[in-house]
């Protein structure tokens, strides 16, 4: 029996009777991070990194949760579980699972770039590496973060000098805080959508974000002129957006690599800024584990695992999961 198996509920450790990021209700589940396709509602017991506790409680309400520190070992029926930074969003963890000398690592979602917000990714040696590969295509190659933020800053500054409001769409958990943390707040006032505002209040004490104001209907249109509004992608077509006057829209996402993805969403501008690993970083991560076996869970899994088999000689396969994958057009809050 393998240490971890994929069943209809999620990734399961039979020896410990514990699930990882289960997509159906289970009695006991280790959760890698707070995005809704990984942290689902209704488990009996949650085990997650301490940073995640306020996030998950904010999103799912009251629940029974045990917090772990980085590298802290949880022993269940002889199986050692520990959490290691995944660098995806604040609190995101890889799960290391060890039993009788055999080590598996499940990444959840991750990136190698240091975003200045969350604890950076740490490679963990293992025999079997269960990895995401959302951007597992050589077409994806991220620029250094500072270059992207220079672009965002100059876009905002130019809009501001033309009295145009800058609307920047990014996921409320992770991307929004990353934007707030790294954008040049001296350019002008920053407003955030309520979803982001509430999350910031729930989690952001520890993150030293610049000043931001809750965007609500009582704010005068004239006040918003030239400001930066950070909002989740789902609100792009909301009625209030049309009411805020002269504006230009942009999204910050790895998908903005494709001209087609931006045009389809009728955005003015796309910034290639992702909380996932690009092609080279995925390969770097796989190699750093020293693993022999790879299981690709979501993203361009067939392509990525074929490359690992044929070019790197690894024993690579794919497993179907309920984690969001081909999500260019997805506007809900996941990934």
């Amino acid at each position: 029996m393998p240490l971890l198996v994929f069943n209809k509920n999620g990734i399961y450790c039979p020896q410990a009777d514990v699930y990882l990021d289960a997509w159906r209700k289970v009695p006991k589940c280790i959760v890698t991070h707070g995005h809704s396709d990984h942290a689902r509602y209704g488990h009996g017991q949650y085990i997650t990194h301490k940073t995640n506790i306020p996030i998950i409680k904010h999103r799912l309400g009251k629940l029974q949760v045990q917090g772990l520190d980085w590298n802290e070992t949880l022993l269940v029926n002889g199986v050692k579980f520990s959490l290691h930074p995944a660098g995806h969003i604040p609190g995101s963890a890889q799960v290391r699972v060890e039993y009788k000398g055999e080590v598996w690592v499940f990444t959840g979602d991750y990136k190698l770039q240091d975003d200045g917000l969350c604890v950076p990714f740490e490679p963990v040696k293992c025999h079997t590496f269960i990895t995401e590969c959302t951007f597992g295509l050589p077409a994806f190659s991220w620029e250094p973060q500072q270059e992207v933020f220079n672009e965002i800053d100059s876009w905002w500054a130019a809009n501001r000098s033309n009295d145009v409001t800058s609307l920047l769409f990014g996921y409320s958990l992770g991307k929004a805080q990353r934007i707030l943390k790294n954008v040049n707040a001296d350019i002008g006032p920053i407003y955030v959508h309520k979803t982001i505002y509430d999350l910031n209040k729930a989690m952001a004490k520890d993150f030293d974000l610049p000043e931001f104001t809750l965007l609500d209907t009582s704010i005068d249109k004239a006040e918003l002129k030239g400001s930066l509004i950070v909002a989740p992608p789902g609100v792009q077509n909301a009625a209030w957006i049309r009411k805020i006057g002269a504006q230009t829209t942009a999204a910050a996402s790895g998908w903005m690599t494709f001209r087609g993805a931006r045009r389809r969403r009728a955005l003015d501008k796309g910034f290639v800024l992702s909380d996932h690993a690009d092609w080279q970083d995925l390969l770097t991560a796989v190699k750093a584990t020293g693993c022999q076996q790879v299981i690709a869970t979501h993203g361009y899994t067939e392509i990525f695992s074929r490359y690992l088999r044929e070019e790197l000689g690894l024993d690579a396969k794919t497993e179907a999961t309920a984690y969001e994958a081909e999500t260019i057009d997805q506007t809900q809050e996941t990934a």
Partner: peptide, 14 residues
Amino acid sequence: PAWLFEESYHIVGD
């Protein structure tokens, strides 16, 4: 590899 370029092309679409 050539197949990887072709896969990428089909996904990028241009």
